[in-house]
């Protein structure tokens, strides 16, 4: 199972958001796509998930262009969790998860034993079995996100694409969701590709890091090889110190203090960068 972008150009009318991008996503690994706001990371994921048709280039699944495969066929191999999915009012967790079985069902077969087994497994592994009869709109953000992941898992695809799965979650729920994805990758060998907001989380959970800048890949590889102060400054426009994560020994970025940033950063090192946003006032 391999997913690959080949000379991919994506956009929404206007200038391309992702330009001539080629990328091989390692099978059986966790890939995190990171970058500043509007760098094209979510757009790239949308392109990989065929939500956005390429202007040029192609996304290849095991060597075949996505556009040439039937959408159902793709859905059996490639799952997606959108950024802020919406469920109809009153939909229960159980019914949501069951909808993940769509690409495996037919009009006659709508609840095969196989369907039931996969639904039960997805509820179990995401720890949502106890919530199965609850309506999604009554759940906490973390519970709801787990239910959506369960739906994507019930789809039983080798590859799972997730667009910022931790956004809007508090810290405990963020860790919970990422741990779950790590377990799925380790225990089941599933390929996980996710857009992440938090670079430190990406370093910790990803085997392969893709750093994007203005629609192109700035750097990619194992986090330990890719993440250094120069990369973070180039991609995020932020001066940081890199220290080892005390838990996992992966690289961890600690933003430099504002005063030091002013005095120690050589003049001109970060000027002319439009992505430098004015520093926020003291948060307190």
């Amino acid at each position: 199972m391999s997913l690959r972008a080949d000379g991919l150009t994506l956009g929404y009318g206007g200038d391309p958001v992702v330009a001539d991008l080629s990328l091989e996503l390692p099978a059986g690994a966790i890939t995190a796509i990171v970058g500043a706001n509007a760098c094209g990371k979510s757009t790239l994921l949308r392109g990989l998930a065929r939500l956005l048709a390429p202007r040029s280039g192609a996304v290849l699944l095991d060597g075949t262009e996505l556009a040439k495969l039937g959408t159902r066929e793709v859905a059996r191999r490639l799952g997606l969790l959108p950024q802020s999915p919406a469920a109809p009012e009153g939909l229960t967790v159980e019914d949501l998860v069951a909808r993940g079985r769509y690409p495996h069902q037919s009009w006659l077969q709508q609840f095969s034993r196989d369907d039931q087994d996969h639904i039960e497994w997805a509820l179990e592994v995401t720890d949502t079995a106890g919530l199965r009869r609850r309506a999604l709109d009554q759940l906490s953000g973390g519970q709801r996100q787990r239910a959506w992941i369960a739906m994507a898992l019930a789809q039983d695809t080798e590859t799972l694409l997730l667009d910022e799965p931790t956004t809007f979650l508090d810290m405990a729920h963020q860790v919970e969701v990422l741990d779950l994805l790590a377990d799925l990758n380790r225990e089941q060998g599933r390929t996980v590709v996710m857009v992440l907001h938090d670079l430190n989380q990406a370093c910790r959970y990803a085997d392969h890091l893709v750093a994007m800048d203005r629609g192109r890949i700035h750097a990619q590889g194992p986090p330990a090889d890719v993440v250094d102060a120069a990369m973070v400054r180039a991609v995020f426009g932020l001066d940081v110190r890199i220290v080892p994560d005390p838990e996992e020994h992966t690289p961890m970025c600690v933003p430099a203090r504002r005063r030091r940033r002013r005095s120690e950063v050589a003049p001109g090192a970060a000027t002319g960068d439009a992505r430098h946003e004015p520093l926020a006032p003291d948060p307190s």
Partner: peptide, 20 residues
């Protein structure tokens, strides 16, 4: 009906589930 249920999860989820 099955397509309708998938569509009720939003266009992105419906595409991901393989609905035309």
């Amino acid at each position: 009906t099955r397509a309708l249920d998938a569509l009720s999860l939003g266009e992105e989820s419906a595409v991901a589930l393989g609905v035309p």
